[in-house]
Simulated scan of single mutants.
Amino acid sequence: MKHDQLFNIYKEQNFSSKEEILTFLSKESCKYTGISNIEFKNEILKREEQGSIEIAPGVLLPHFESSSFIKSKIFILPIKPEIKEWNEEIQNVHLVIAILLKTDEDSSIKQKITQFTRKLADDDYLDRLMNAETKNNN
């Protein structure tokens, strides 16, 4: 995967709960997209209520679009050890990929996001993301 300002890839992170992950991601999103911590958490939880965010066993893809974003961002967060319980339906989470799409984003950025999401259907690609060794590609 080409690394550019769209992606932030973190080394394996050690979290003990869903709340810790959401707090970490909300702080990161605030730095890069300009959205508040509270708005981030509310939007992620609202998205989760709409339907499962699990795209493969233990792989979560929370995402939402907002006009509040100053730019779009993708956070790739491998988690070790895994989070045993995310919610009643989702267990053993070992990778979180958060996609934050700026409303009216440039078509070239939208195209990069589309190309990236298509690759997520490939188990080998997901394995590489889970073992990412790059930190904070801004």
Rank of each mutant, 00 (worst) to 15 (best):
E65V: 05
S66T: 08
S68R: 13
I70R: 13
K71P: 00
K71L: 02
S72W: 01
S72Q: 09
S72T: 08
K73M: 04
K73N: 04
F75T: 07
F75L: 12
F75G: 05
I76A: 07
I76T: 13
P78D: 04
I79Q: 07
K80W: 10
I83L: 15
I83K: 09
K84Q: 15
K84V: 11
E85W: 02
W86N: 12
N87M: 10
N87G: 13
I90T: 11
I90D: 07
Q91V: 15
N92R: 12
V96C: 15
V96L: 06
I97D: 01
A98K: 01
A98G: 02
I99H: 00
I99Q: 05
L100F: 13
L100P: 01
K102L: 07
T103C: 04
D104M: 03
E105V: 03
E105F: 02
E105S: 12
D106E: 14
S107C: 07
S108E: 10
I109M: 06
K110T: 05
Q111W: 10
K112L: 08
K112T: 07
I113L: 10
T114R: 13
T114N: 13
Q115N: 15
Q115L: 12
F116E: 08
F116P: 07
K119N: 13
K119S: 11
K119E: 14
K119I: 00
L120Q: 06
L120D: 03
D123L: 09
D124K: 14
Y125H: 07
Y125V: 06
